[in-house]
Design a protein around this nucleic acid. Structure first.
Lengths: 207, 207
DNA sequence: AGATAATATTTCCTATTGGCTAATTTGTTG
DNA sequence: CAACAAATTAGCCAATAGGAAATATTATCT
């Protein structure tokens, strides 16, 4: 199929939630080229160091192909760059001097089967913390069969109601409004409301 | 079930190049599955959020294929995770499975000239966040002459009262109970209570 | 309990794209 | 312009991404 017009960068938005943001703010090829050139490497030399073919490198740098994850690893390995560095925005993670105000009740809703989250910030990818307010519906311990468990650390403050924090290695801890907890999120954890009313907690997760 | 497929090629992640690279210490699929499940998402939901097919997600999670970089981007975008986080080795600064409970009003007092802080955790050196509750006494803008300014990011939630957040580059923002703010702490900032009563805020600082 | 329905996940097949070798074009110097 | 080096493109094969059927898992009824 011979085209004479330059390839249109297709930006396909899938159906369903219209929440999808564009998927190419990050010019990987351009940055890789900069890195290679800053190392004074030719495509051939980079090829030898990474184990990828010259042509492949060329196409990646010109953004004609999207490298496989293993290819990215080989690149990072061969050129002595760590992957996180590749994807960090040019400067600080969060743009300097930025702020996000969230008025009461106007966070982004994010319901799950067991909790009702309200995200209190946006552009989470660039931030170190994820703050949200969560409504914990009254329920019993039996309602969950598996711990919540993920990277990072969590801080939570009870705003309203009474609940218990179940954790993997300890006895359940009853908590009332004003109590707070700081814990390692790799430890299994789950919240259970103890009263008939829902409980309300502030939750901050740090990576 | 027709298991006996003739010439079914074995699916291997390492392509046939067979070069030196021992690149696959990082269980990407496993981590992605954990992330998806921690969000209580089904493959179908994740598919809608990311624009990737169910089957593709499944194969990625089972490490049967090496996702294209655009696929990784769609994943990160749709699931609200940032890419560096994906590739960082799971390090644990905080002792695994530890927790600190702070009952209401029993935090460590830490008064300053302008605020009255109550630290809500201990062993701060090992943690990623510093949470504290602060009472902001009624005062005027003139009471402070210099901005507070430090490394990291801050999240604050107004628990009681009315106050204004003064920041270096913006107009003062009036806030009432329930409002929250996320901002870069390098930007000069200061809180002023607007009512006769003291205001109470929750404050979390991330390094 | 079992049977059945509903949903979640995996498998199979096809179309598309990444990746390698080899050839072509482009750029630089003598 | 020749001669060389570097980068890009063409052709081919293998791997990935998508779609739908098959399987596994969970929920709902009698």
């Amino acid at each position: 199929m011979s085209k004479e017009q330059p390839d249109m960068p297709e930006l396909k938005i899938e159906s369903g939630s219209g929440l999808q943001t564009n998927v190419e703010p990050l010019q990987l090829g351009k940055r890789l080229r900069e890195i290679r050139q800053s190392l004074s490497l030719t495509l051939e030399e980079a090829s030898q160091k990474t184990g990828l073919a010259r042509s492949t490198l060329s196409k990646i740098e010109n953004e004609q192909i999207s490298p496989t994850f293993t290819a990215v690893q080989k690149l990072a390995n061969g050129l002595q760059i760590d992957i996180p560095q590749l994807f960090e925005k040019p400067r600080k993670a969060m743009a300097s001097g930025r702020r996000v105000l969230t008025k009461a009740g106007e966070g982004t809703p994010h319901p799950t089967s067991t909790y009702e989250h309200e995200l209190l910030s946006t552009e989470l990818a660039r931030k170190k913390m994820v703050p949200f307010k969560t409504r914990v519906r009254a329920r019993s311990f039996d309602d969950f069969c598996d711990w919540v468990r993920h990277e990072g650390e969590e801080f939570l403050l009870v705003l309203e109601g009474e609940l218990a924090l179940y954790t993997e290695f300890y006895e359940p801890v009853p908590m009332v409004a004003g109590d707070s907890m700081y814990y390692d999120a790799n430890m299994g954890h789950a919240l259970v409301s103890l009263s008939e009313k829902d409980a309300l907690v502030l939750w901050v997760v740090a990576r």
